[in-house]
Write a protein that binds this DNA or RNA. Structure first.
Length: 695
DNA sequence: ATAGGGTTAG
């Protein structure tokens, strides 16, 4: 018994023989480890004190509720009790309900019922908690019926668990019915209802109920605010969000970290990332959740570079990321094409044996796919033990965008074989797979099966995919008819899709018509005029091409500057086409000149048509050679080792000249070059591109 | 003895 001294610091070795008369609080408070408990248990057995139900229940409570991983120990003690009283059952049911074996809690409840042991409010709330965790609606309903049948007097604890159980089982209406029928409601009841709405994504209802709380002047607490802030974030309801923000300040609650984290998240989701950052900087202790919230705030605001910077700062601050943090970090890497950083994150996840949750795995798949490494996506997919519709969809979309249309469709088939129900987004992926792989009939078939076989109503995006499938394959007239027969008015995106096909198939008439439709719906982007202009240029109507291009200036349409990113040693470098002359160093320009000279020697001819269209006032060649991707590739060539792959991501479509030049570069410099443009991937190798010059 | 809470994806 020597070691018990260390565990029970108030008792000396001799005093163990004088075990306290009533050792209940000693058992509950002093047993810090399973070992402590075992020794106390042994002592109680030896001294036959275990016959006292009060003492036994204290041991049970310690084993079933307070200590980790001792639930089996608790069960073995419980099973030795001759005729357990209801309080002993209650402790066990509650312990089982909390300790990940809610099914056993239910079984024990059943046993209790069979043995006619009286159940009470404690039994009911514990067993309902178990039902809630298991999403066992049927059993929950049975318990509810039993509560009503046994003439049980209303009790707020039980009613609150009923609300929780019904909400967790998706029966939010029943939950509300229970709530409405309560004779008295503390703030916990209101909070239970709010959290029920939250779990079901009914954000509007959260705000509605909170307005009621305000109206009735019910005093709310931090738990209330956390639910409501969550809803405000999802709804971008800054009005209520700020109201709570001011309340928090006025009540001096800023030191409540959980609350402040919710506030940060709300501001970030409402587009006020800088306000969120200010709150974040003012926190006196930032835990991993606060960091994760702020990082995801930047990522959602499309400020991924800042997200990654903050991630690096987090590591300097010795806060360890968890799988939630990594989801936002990988999302940012995917957006930026920051392959090295993302690869390191994957390595870190493995090294730290982080749980590969469905969300994290799905994000890894998306990350690799967006960096052009679709094989790695497939690997991750195969390693995952749990996959959901998001996982399958990410893989299918990744395959489609990387030109693996056929494989995407194969995975779609095996998704169905695995009884995973596709959703509307899955079909976007599947249809774009058909589009990239030029599988017209397959596309038609899948589009028609959406409503018929899967009960999914095609949205305008799906119609857009169909237009793309038809248009790419050259069925422009059919695509036009298809748009005409849509059940809703076409938007600019649909016409833009057709316009792109018109360029590919050199159909002037329909290109003109498409642009007309676009301008009728919204002010056209500069890219639309460029597509039409390119179409004219392709059929030799250079004057028209120039005329259309000049419209961009005349109409003062803002041009989106082309921007290419390349990541080197974990740092993302940005190159812009517009300010190429001024911003970049001599080193880069020298590299660019050298690169252009070398590919010309091998037969590259700059496309002066495009150059002429682009900027008549500048010398033709200079203009085109300064597209951002050429700068980024030139920089990549001098900064990376020979024969390694160069990866670029770009915010616009690649132009034909850059596409052509990159093919030459891949050959001359013996480099694999992967360019992710706005729409798809181009894998350049040995002078050829994976898109077969069709994009 | 019991009830309600923050960050994550296609």
């Amino acid at each position: 018994m020597a070691s018990i001294v260390g565990c029970l610091p108030n008792i000396s070795l001799t005093s163990i023989t004088q075990f306290p008369e009533n050792p209940k609080s000693l058992i509950l408070q002093q047993c810090k480890t399973p070992k402590d408990l075992q020794q106390v248990h042994a002592h109680l057995l030896k001294t036959r004190r275990l016959l006292d139900p009060i003492i036994t229940e204290a041991v049970l409570e310690s084993a079933a509720l307070l200590l980790p991983d001792t639930i089996d120990y608790a069960l073995s003690i419980f099973n030795h009790i001759d005729k357990p009283e209801s309080s002993a059952y209650n402790v066990m049911i509650r312990g089982l309900a909390f300790k990940r074996s809610p099914d056993n809690a239910l079984l024990l409840f059943k046993k209790m019922h069979e043995k006619s042991v009286q159940h009470d409010k404690f039994t009911f709330s514990s067993v309902l908690k178990a039902c809630s965790r298991m999403k066992a609606l049927r059993e929950g309903e049975q318990v509810h019926a039993l509560i009503l049948k046994s003439g049980f007097k209303s009790n707020e604890f039980v009613e609150n668990t009923l609300i929780q159980m019904y909400a967790n089982c998706g029966q939010i209406g029943v939950a509300r019915h229970v709530f409405d029928g309560m004779p008295e409601r503390s703030i916990v009841a209101w909070n239970s209802m709010l959290s029920g709405y939250t779990k079901n994504g009914l954000w509007d209802e959260v705000v509605k109920l909170f307005r009621k709380i305000l109206e009735l002047r019910i005093e709310f607490d931090d738990v209330t605010m956390i639910s409501v802030l969550m809803a405000c974030g999802r709804l971008a309801n800054l009005e209520i969000g700020e109201l709570i923000g001011e309340y928090i300040v006025s009540k001096g609650l800023r030191r409540n970290n959980t609350l402040t984290t919710s506030l940060i998240d709300m501001y970030a989701k409402c587009g006020q990332v800088d306000t969120a950052r200010k709150l974040f900087d003012e926190m006196d202790k930032r835990d991993v959740v606060a960091w994760s919230a702020m990082i995801s705030g930047y990522a959602q605001a499309d400020r991924c570079k800042e997200a990654l910077n903050l991630f690096h700062e987090m590591q300097k601050g010795n806060v360890y990321p968890n799988e939630v943090t990594m989801v936002s970090v990988l999302y940012s890497c995917a957006m930026l094409g920051a392959y090295e950083t993302g690869k390191w994150v994957h390595f870190y996840i493995k090294k730290k044996k982080m749980k590969l949750t469905v969300t994290l795995g799905t994000q890894l798949i998306d990350f690799y796919a967006k960096c052009g490494y679709i094989d790695r996506s497939v690997e991750v997919f195969k390693e995952m033990s749990f996959k959901n519709v998001f996982t399958w969809t990410a893989l299918i979309q990744g395959l489609a965008n990387n030109g693996e249309g056929k494989m995407a469709l194969e995975f779609f088939s095996s998704m169905l074989e695995n009884d995973v129900k596709p959703n509307d987004v899955t079909f976007i992926g599947v249809l774009s797979a058909c589009s990239h792989a030029c599988l017209v009939d397959q596309g038609r078939h899948l589009f028609n099966s959406m409503r018929r076989d899967f009960d999914i109503e095609p949205r305008i995006e799906h119609y857009g995919c169909m237009v793309d499938i038809l248009g790419r394959a050259g069925f422009l007239e059919e695509a036009y008819q298809f748009i005409d027969n849509m059940p809703f008015p076409p938007n600019a995106v649909v016409w833009r899709t057709l316009l792109a096909s018109c360029r590919a198939h050199k159909n002037i008439e329909m290109a003109e018509k498409s642009l007309e439709h676009i301008t009728r719906l919204e002010p056209a982007h500069s890219g639309d005029y460029i597509l039409l202009s390119n179409t004219y240029a392709l059929v030799g109507r250079v004057e028209d091409a120039i005329r259309v291009r000049s419209l961009i200036k005349e109409k003062e349409i803002k041009k989106i500057p082309g921007c290419s990113l390349i990541e080197l040693d974990g740092v993302v470098h940005e190159f812009f086409s517009e300010d190429g002359e001024h911003k970049h160093s001599k080193e880069i320009h020298d590299a660019l000149d050298k690169m252009m000279k070398q590919i010309k020697r091998l037969g590259y001819v700059p496309n002066t048509d495009d150059a002429r269209l682009e900027a008549e006032e500048e010398s033709k060649e200079t203009s085109v050679s300064h597209h951002s991707e050429k700068l980024a590739i030139a920089y990549g060539l001098i900064r990376t080792s020979p024969r390694t792959t160069i990866r670029i991501s770009k915010n616009l479509r690649m132009c034909r000249d850059c596409h052509n030049a990159t093919k030459f570069i891949s050959q001359v410099f013996e480099r694999m070059i992967i360019v992710r443009d706005r729409n798809r991937f181009h894998h350049f190798k040995d002078g050829l591109c994976s898109c077969n010059d069709y994009w």
